[in-house]
Design a protein around this nucleic acid. Structure first.
Lengths: 196, 196
DNA sequence: CATAAAAAATACTAGTTAGTATGAAAAAGC
DNA sequence: GCTTTTTCATACTAACTAGTATTTTTTATG
């Protein structure tokens, strides 16, 4: 990787970390360049504006991470109910980057940016749509193989699962411990078993 | 009401509206006093700091509103499953103040403030706890009257319902229309019927 | 009506914000 | 090696931020 490409990536990664923990609006460019040891000239060479950097984070960090970490792993499997539970459970309890205190990066950005920045909305919506489609697809396969009842509606379930995930992330933030996660996961299992 | 008490309330109401639509951090005191036509001197006479005003909004606006609008209405009823659905459906589709585009005020504040402001966390946690307890209570009553299965765990269901609500609010923001609400509500009905 | 206290108005400060202008160093192309 | 382009460094600006100091007006109370 060229040196220039490297500084660009450094900015994206460090900025993402700051934004994840502090929020987008309250993360200043001065703070980003201070922690990256990159000068303002370098920053604005790579990104025309702060928002352009924000979009780049979604496209170049969040999207690939999602693909790698919780879409691909379910690709091979055949048991949707188990997959869904494992996916959410992994994200809540085991993912080494995500922290209870700071919630879900995609959820945070959606909440913060969506009402007044269309470019963020579009980039985030695309990302979430990928995830949703993946879930719907799993359900259809499960229906074919008989692991899921025929009257289950994929889109409804997808919204229901993802909503629950985003919502419980907020509870985690509120209490700053994972006890709410554990209670939630128990009921998620009950719900998912109802799909069989 | 005294004139002073009135300006205080005006500030709280207008500030809440701004914060609901724009977020807490990005709503400036200058903006609040501009829209309220109240001077800075008046503002800082009533509130020592911006954060103190934020807490007052939670205590004096959000908490009473929640009590009035979606805790009291379920007090008389006897059918929890129906109540839960109606409560969420009302909030998502009918509440005249809440807008798809701006999500849930409590959820927004939780997401934004919780990781780094303890006073906000405590005030919000108290509010949400009231709501959660109300749901748990309804479920226990439902179990007694035979409308809900005995093996249903109240706390789990409470987390599950509230998480789903917060999460789907985020989807609404993302798409800026209530189509996701409608899909979500269908699955909520399926889930709630499973409690019978 | 006089006086004290409460409520509000005005002008200011020090710090922070995103972004720019300009020039220097590093790398690439010939 | 020389020139051009890419990459980065430094110093700056104008607007905005929460909060303060000080004075003036309004209201309550005797």
């Amino acid at each position: 990787m060229s040196k220039a490409a490297n500084t660009r990536l450094t900015i994206l990664h460090k900025a993402f970390e700051l934004i994840y923990t502090k929020g987008y609006q309250t993360t200043s460019i001065d703070e980003i360049i201070a922690t990256t040891q990159v000068t303002k000239g370098a920053f604005y060479y790579h990104f025309k504006t702060k928002d352009e950097m924000g979009i780049a984070i979604i496209e170049e960090i969040l999207k690939p991470t999602m693909q790698e970490n919780f879409i691909k792993p379910t690709e091979a499997s055949q048991n949707p109910v188990e997959d869904f539970y494992n996916m959410i459970s992994y994200l809540l309890l085991e993912d080494p980057f995500l922290q209870v205190k700071y919630g879900c990066p995609v959820g945070n950005l959606t909440q913060e940016m969506t009402p007044w920045n269309n470019r963020f909305s579009e980039a985030l919506a695309e990302l979430v749509d990928l995830w949703k489609k993946k879930i719907i697809n799993s359900i259809e396969k499960g229906k074919e193989s008989g692991l899921i009842r025929k009257d289950v509606v994929g889109e409804q379930v997808a919204f229901f699962i993802l909503s629950g995930y985003w919502g419980i992330r907020n509870f985690g933030k509120l209490q700053n411990d994972n006890s709410s996660y554990l209670v939630y996961l128990k009921e998620l299992k009950v719900y998912l078993n109802g799909l069989k």
